[in-house]
Amino acid sequence: MLHTFVALVEDKPGVLTRVASLFRRLNVNIVSLTVGRSEREGVSRMTIVAEASPTAGHRITASLYKLENILEVDDVGQYACVTRELALIKVAATPQTRSHIFELVEVFRARIVDLAPESLMIEITGVSSKIEGLIQVLMESGDEILEVARTGRMVMRRGRHTSRVMEAMRIAGVPEAEILEPNVTAESGEESQLPQ
């Protein structure tokens, strides 16, 4: 099954290798991996989607924590989350064949971000199945897809939940022992169910 982990890591050379190497060592295939800055200076945020047995989540999380540069790991699969992926799709299209693509883009709530005499570029954001849906519809309608670039999934938990790192910063002054206790109410009580 697919597992999704959100990891906050120190922004240092080699940290990505350490994380990727761990999955390799556990013989777990990474389906997608996105890395970018987080809300805090010097801390990167990774979303890692991996294919592994249903019981592997605990071991992967525990093993990630053994890496010295890892600040926090969240196995988010069990929680309500917003998942997004961004894709750029370049399609061959002339002025004569453009119009039906504009319609499709409208239906999928995507955008045209580049228009050239013989091609156009679509930007689409959403869950992976939505992106795959657009690609499929384009192919079925006979359009030639020239290039696809996808970011891989980014995930954020719904509701008031925040990372323990941020939690600790927000309530600075509170004894550390209390910060390290998991915030139970935030995880169970205040999950809002916004439409996606």
Binding site: T55, H58, R59, A62, Y65, K66
Partner: peptide, 8 residues
Amino acid sequence: IDPAEINK
């Protein structure tokens, strides 16, 4: 001491 060893 190592959580990764639990239920491994």
